[in-house]
Computed example of a mutant assay.
Amino acid sequence: MLSHKIDQNTELKLLERHHAEAVFRLVDANRDHLRPWMFWVDDTKTVSDSETFIQKALEGFARGTEIHLGIWVDGEMAGIVGAHTIDPIKSYAEIGYWLGKGFQGRGIMTRAVRALIDDLLGERGLNRVEIRCAASNRRSQAVAERLGFRREGRLKKATPVRGGFEDLLIFGMLAEEWRSGKKDMGR
């Protein structure tokens, strides 16, 4: 998936180097909002840091081991959705996502994640997708739940949050479940 129109106003686009400034501006404007769950926020200090992230993401895309898509709403960068791990041998992907505060509450992330899962479980033919998020991150959990993911586990103090560690929740979806209609949840 290089680009995908979600609706009249929303599009996913494969992150490219020329998107680095837009990514950095969105991160910079949302530091306090993202910091509780995104440990990398304080390491993103310049546009060059965003360029480095995108370059590594493109290298992973070329290897088929990851994909990172910018979420654009009315031509403005709103967030990122992606698979930071794609393992074709295990037929598995782990996805993550974040959205600028001003874009929340409109179903944008649920639609973006749905499109990514359609690609991973449909087009790429993977067997399983996981979403992992901090136990306190209710918004990330809600996206997984709206899309019919089942909570499969809890890893104690396994993710860095607010200078400490917090439990990590694991949500899973199998291709057969996705095809059987669970993907219609959250529409």
Rank of each mutant, 00 (worst) to 15 (best):
A135V: 13
D43I: 10
S50W: 07
H33P: 14
R162K: 15
L174A: 08
K156N: 10
M109F: 06
R187W: 06
D7M: 12
A115G: 00
A83P: 08
R111N: 05
N137A: 14
F103Y: 06
G153V: 00
R128C: 08
L99W: 11
G186T: 06
R132A: 06
Q104I: 05
T159P: 08
G100P: 10
V47T: 03
W72N: 12
V23F: 09
E11S: 14
G60H: 12
A144C: 00
E94Q: 13
G153Y: 03
T10G: 09
A20P: 05
K183D: 01
G163K: 09
G82W: 04
A134Y: 07
L147E: 03
P88S: 06
L69F: 10
T110K: 03
D43W: 09
F165N: 12
H68I: 06
E59P: 06
A83D: 02
D42H: 02
W178C: 00
E66T: 05
F149V: 00
A83N: 06
T159H: 08
K56I: 11
D119T: 15
F171S: 08
S91P: 01
W37C: 13
P160C: 07
F39A: 09
E21S: 00
A29G: 15
K183S: 05
E51A: 04
T65V: 09
V23Y: 04
S91V: 05
D49C: 02
R17N: 14
G186R: 05
S140M: 12
G153T: 04
D167Q: 03
V27A: 07
I95D: 02
K157G: 10
E166W: 11
F103W: 02
G60D: 13
R31H: 15
G79W: 12
C133Q: 05
S140K: 13
C133K: 04
R150Y: 13
E152M: 03
R132M: 07
D87N: 07
M185S: 08
G163E: 08
A62N: 11
R124M: 15
R162N: 15
V27R: 03
A83F: 08
